[in-house]
Write a protein that binds this DNA or RNA. Structure first.
Lengths: 359, 359
DNA sequence: CTGAAAGCGCTTACAG
DNA sequence: CTGAAAGCGCTTACAG
């Protein structure tokens, strides 16, 4: 009989009462654990009504709650989907596009009783991230950063981890990876639409504002813009302005540096709304009229677009839906053993505002 | 010997190769599972170097990866913290204040090798939410909605779930719940500061814009504002304008309805920046000058504050840090069996902008 | 309708 | 330094 050391100044911290287990319920009800399991899992057809009732009373009496970890181990499923976001800036959820994807994914998974394990990784070396540990997740969604080549290699490796993978916004991957499904939106078309729009309005000289670290969607937007501007435009008239972390301050600093060495273009095309609004405000502060003197466009059509004047011409992204679609694709894969489609592309729409067209 | 039915049109889907287990590694290396376990867990002092090497080679050869689910069951810990957000609007991560808390929590937990299980619940009835299932999480953070009384009762019940609880932004809870730690910021002081500021500037008649569904922080901000306006202001001059989901459109609609029946106050005090900016824009559209004709304030000092003109006078909230502090508190609790502090209050600061003061 | 037993993949005293 | 065995809390064929 070992006892806690006597004369301790404080009350001996009483040992945490062990959680009631199925065994305890079984004993209390005078049945086997298996019958308890049947009640807990709603297999009432396997029980006599009075047995069931006795067990239910015992459950209530001892305050039993099932241990999901044990059940999941036994059933070899985690009822959880991982969401891994590579983010070297450390503010992943501060980006509304990502926050909305996460929101749609989490909400839809929740509807089907799945959880979402969220992790951001500052490093590109991601294979022993928590979300890939066996028994933690049944599938994982990734939103990567880095060069096209790096990401392609990484996804190939991830596809061998014996875990279904959803890759957001990727394009041009090998299509023989059965464990991988790409979900993206038509960023290329979005880029084309917005570029054609400003070109049709007569702009000749362009500058594109890009994030300092490109995600895959951004590259597509840029390609689309180049296509939309058209080769008939003749001269090389499309500058690129990287804007670091895309914050208001970084964007304006990058713009000022650009304008110190270059004439002001006819139109600034920004790869998201953040940078677009920062541009509008800087132009106005410089005494230029938007859109008469210079046009500005954004991308994503986030709620905060409404905060600035004039309203940004932009492209609507259905980010929340992208998360929801991912959840559905995973659920299908988990049920049927394969992805229904290996690539899903969501549409985008042009929204014209006062930043390119006067009322 | 049962075989798959012959003459199937498709290739028989080959049974997914079972994941290599410790047993497989042990056999491959000619040792016991326990030695494999020792290698996997870095207990190298318990092994002869050559044994270790043989095992490491076997691990690489069979492609073994540990099963976190099994390990966690055995060790009775989940290495995961839940984050539960009650959200009746369905856009929880769209709210930057919440997204930042989640980001800070997730990043800090990740540093200590803990995962974050994120779930939003549209209902207030939350006890059998995923995040409270045993074996899934070691602790859970909650950010609730609903009346003060409802939330207090709910937290009392949650504290009996045998799971440490961090309650964000709660105030005035019973302080005898050893399983509960409150982490909040000084919203009341923030409210006071901002109210005193506009009062000192000579405003006499006020209106406060509030969310349609109050979270606990919002109530505190309101109380602080009332205190800051002071009883010496004499008349009842502080109106309340609930703004539904706080979107740009809802806020402006609520404002217009208010102005149809009431004279314009001297100052609109908004419980967050979203509504503050929507107010500024509406006032300007109505031909009023901000701040000369009407003052407007916000709350939280989010990045998008920079998007509107004039710059909102607001209160800085350290939401990301709040998440990080929560992670630290949980880690301490998990290690020492009790919370270091039962309540942690983060400071707030007044930031003056052009929406109350002319340059 | 009910129960005894094996096992999910690990870890951890306990012997040797 | 190494191994055989028990057990974390469940589920699931298999008998009775």
């Amino acid at each position: 009989m070992t006892r806690p050391p006597p004369k301790s100044g404080k009350k001996a911290p009483r040992a945490p009462a062990p959680r009631p287990t199925m065994r305890k319920v079984a004993i209390a009800a005078g049945v086997s654990v298996m019958s308890v399991s049947n009640v807990v899992n709603g297999r009432f057809d396997l029980l006599r009504p009075d047995t069931r009732q006795r067990i239910e009373e015992a459950i209530a009496k001892v305050g039993y709650r099932p241990h999901a970890g044990a059940r999941n181990l036994r059933r070899s499923r985690a009822m959880t989907v991982g969401l891994l976001i590579i983010d070297q800036s450390g503010t992943f959820l501060g980006e509304p596009f990502i926050a909305q994807i996460a929101g749609g994914l989490s909400a839809t998974l929740g509807d089907y009783n799945y959880g979402m394990l969220l992790q951001a990784s500052p490093t590109l070396d991601v294979e022993d991230s928590l979300v890939f540990e066996h028994g933690r997740t049944d599938a994982v969604c990734v939103f990567l950063e880095g060069s096209d080549g790096y990401r392609a290699k990484l996804i190939e490796r991830l596809s061998k981890l014996d875990q279904p993978i959803i890759a957001f916004q990727e394009v041009g991957l090998r299509n023989d990876l059965p464990n991988v499904c790409v979900i993206r939106q038509h960023d290329l078309v979005g880029g084309q639409l917005i570029a054609q729009h400003v070109r049709d309005l007569g702009a000749k000289r362009f500058a594109v504002l890009t994030p300092g670290i490109m995600r895959p969607g951004a590259s597509q937007r840029l390609i689309g813009i180049r296509e939309g501007l058209g080769r008939d435009s003749g001269e090389k008239t499309c500058a690129i302005i990287p804007c670091g972390d895309m914050s208001f301050a970084s964007t304006q600093a990058a713009l000022l540096a650009f304008l110190a060495d270059n004439p002001c273009p006819d139109a600034f095309l920004s790869l998201n709304d953040h940078m677009g609004i920062a541009t509008v405000k800087l132009m106005k502060a410089q005494g230029l009229r938007v859109p008469q003197d210079v046009m500005v466009t954004g991308f994503n059509n986030m709620e905060f677009r409404q905060y600035a004047d004039p309203l940004l011409t932009t492209i609507t992204s259905h980010a929340y839906e992208m998360g929801a679609v991912a959840a559905k694709a995973i659920l299908y894969r988990l049920e049927h053993g394969r992805f229904e489609e290996t690539e899903i592309v969501l549409p985008v729409d042009l929204v014209v505002g006062g930043s390119t067209v006067t009322d």
